[in-house]
Structure formats: structure tokens, C-alpha cells
């Protein structure tokens, strides 16, 4: 299945775009997505941390991607 990933902050710069499209297997999880993204964009591994959000909420590693309408990569936040 094809999934679009929104990117913000430094993740947007690493992707070179505010939205990329990636092919994932049926039943793939957030952990699988991280592995795929890190292989494609090794600079992600140099970040202090990053999270994946699904439908506007932080998603656990075992969360399946299938049911998520909107997926985003959340690099370390720095508001305030």
C-alpha cells in the first residue's frame, strides 16, 4: 500500500519535501515505517529522536499503518 508521510522541521529538510510517498506492505507497523524511512534517509538516524504521528496523535511502534489516514514524522519538538 502507498502511504504519504508529512514532514516538518528538520525532517522536511531531510526529505527535501513536506510530503513524500512510500510503498509499505499490508499490515506494516510504525516500526516498519521507521526502518523504511531510515534506509531511504539515513540522516534520520542522526536525530536526537523522532516520533511518528497517526491522525494527529503520537503513534506507538506496533501501531498498524493501514487504518491511519494521515501520517507525519515528528522530529524533536522545540516550541516555546
Amino acid at each position: 500500500m502507498k502511504k504519504e508521510i508529512l514532514a516538518f522541521g528538520i525532517a522536511r529538510e531531510i526529505f527535501g519535501s513536506s510530503c513524500i510517498s512510500t510503498e509499505m506492505q499490508e499490515g506494516a507497523t510504525v516500526a516498519d515505517l521507521r526502518t523504511t524511512l531510515e534506509a531511504q534517509f539515513p540522516r534520520l538516524r542522526a536525530l536526537a529522536s523522532y516520533m511518528i504521528a497517526g491522525d494527529d496523535e503520537y503513534a506507538a511502534l506496533d501501531r498498524k499503518l493501514d487504518s491511519l489516514k494521515e501520517i507525519a514524522i515528528i522530529p524533536p519538538v522545540s516550541g516555546g
Binding site: F8, G9, I10, Y58, A72, V77, S78, G79, G80
Partner: peptide
């Protein structure tokens, strides 16, 4: 806010 809110 500084730990969790997605602002960069």
C-alpha cells in the same frame, strides 16, 4: 509544551 507539542 516544550516536550510534546509539534512546534519547531
Amino acid at each position: 509544551l516544550k516536550r510534546t507539542v509539534p512546534i519547531w
